Simulated assay, not measured.
Amino acid sequence: MREIIAQTAIIQGWTARQLSTLRNTDPVRDIDREQGTSGQVWWTASLHRALTVEMTVAEVLPMFRRPGAIVLPKLA
C-alpha cells in the first residue's frame, strides 16, 4: 500500500510540474486539466483573448482539449 501511495505522489508531482511548465511557456493560453464524466482526464488550452481575423484565417481554434499534455498544439 505504501508503494502505491509513493507512486501516486510521484505521478502527481510530475503532473504538477508539467502543468506549471506549460502555463509558463504558453502565456497566451490558459492551460488546465479536467476530468470528464467517464473519468477520462483531459488537458485543455484556451486563448486569453478573442480571435483576430489573421488567427481565424490560420484556423487557430480558441480552445483545445486533448488526452495528453504533449499533444496540445502550440501557437506559432
Score class of each variant (00 low, 15 high):
residue 7 Q to L: 09
residue 52 T to I: 01
residue 74 K to N: 08
residue 46 S to C: 14
residue 17 R to N: 13
residue 34 E to Q: 12
residue 23 R to S: 04
residue 18 Q to P: 02
residue 9 A to R: 13
residue 31 I to W: 06
residue 24 N to C: 01
residue 57 V to A: 04
residue 26 D to R: 15
residue 25 T to V: 01
residue 7 Q to S: 09
residue 16 A to H: 12
residue 10 I to R: 06
residue 37 T to F: 13
residue 42 W to I: 11
residue 44 T to A: 13
residue 4 I to T: 09
residue 67 P to T: 04
residue 22 L to I: 03
residue 51 L to E: 03
residue 73 P to A: 05
residue 41 V to T: 15
residue 63 M to N: 11
residue 21 T to W: 06
residue 37 T to P: 10
residue 31 I to F: 03
residue 15 T to P: 01
residue 69 A to D: 12
residue 61 L to P: 00
residue 34 E to M: 14
residue 38 S to P: 10
residue 74 K to D: 12
residue 15 T to I: 15
residue 7 Q to P: 01
residue 1 M to W: 01
residue 29 R to A: 10
residue 17 R to G: 03
residue 57 V to I: 10
residue 20 S to F: 06
residue 37 T to G: 12
residue 26 D to H: 13
residue 34 E to S: 13
residue 7 Q to K: 13
residue 47 L to I: 06
residue 33 R to E: 13
residue 28 V to T: 12
residue 54 E to K: 05
residue 11 I to C: 00
residue 10 I to Y: 01
residue 3 E to L: 05
residue 40 Q to V: 09
residue 67 P to G: 09
residue 1 M to K: 03
residue 15 T to M: 13
residue 50 A to K: 05
residue 22 L to Q: 08
residue 70 I to T: 14
residue 76 A to N: 13
residue 16 A to F: 04
residue 67 P to R: 10
residue 39 G to F: 05
residue 4 I to P: 00
residue 74 K to F: 02
residue 75 L to T: 04
residue 50 A to V: 00
residue 21 T to H: 12
residue 66 R to V: 10
residue 38 S to N: 15
residue 67 P to N: 08
residue 43 W to N: 11
residue 51 L to A: 04
residue 19 L to V: 01
residue 69 A to Y: 11
residue 8 T to L: 13
residue 59 E to F: 01
residue 40 Q to Y: 12
residue 39 G to A: 10
residue 48 H to I: 04
residue 61 L to W: 02
residue 35 Q to S: 07
residue 39 G to H: 14
residue 28 V to A: 07
residue 46 S to W: 02
residue 50 A to M: 03
residue 64 F to L: 10
residue 15 T to V: 14
residue 19 L to I: 03
residue 65 R to W: 06
residue 65 R to L: 08
residue 63 M to C: 09
residue 28 V to D: 15
residue 53 V to C: 01
residue 21 T to E: 11
residue 42 W to Y: 15
residue 46 S to L: 14
residue 18 Q to A: 09
residue 8 T to A: 13
residue 66 R to A: 09
residue 60 V to E: 12
residue 12 Q to H: 09
residue 6 A to S: 07
residue 61 L to H: 06
residue 64 F to Q: 11
residue 12 Q to V: 03
residue 1 M to T: 01
residue 8 T to N: 12
residue 18 Q to H: 03
residue 43 W to C: 11
residue 24 N to S: 05
residue 39 G to E: 13
residue 45 A to Q: 11
residue 61 L to S: 07
residue 47 L to S: 11
residue 65 R to D: 07
residue 38 S to F: 08
residue 53 V to N: 03
residue 61 L to K: 12
residue 19 L to A: 06
residue 49 R to Y: 05
residue 20 S to V: 01
residue 59 E to W: 05
residue 18 Q to V: 05
residue 59 E to C: 07
residue 31 I to G: 07
residue 36 G to E: 15
residue 16 A to C: 05
residue 75 L to C: 09
residue 54 E to Q: 03
residue 32 D to E: 14
residue 58 A to V: 01
residue 66 R to E: 14
residue 3 E to K: 08
residue 8 T to E: 14
residue 36 G to W: 11
residue 72 L to W: 09
residue 24 N to E: 08
residue 68 G to R: 13
residue 13 G to P: 06
residue 11 I to F: 05
residue 33 R to G: 04
residue 52 T to P: 02
residue 40 Q to L: 08
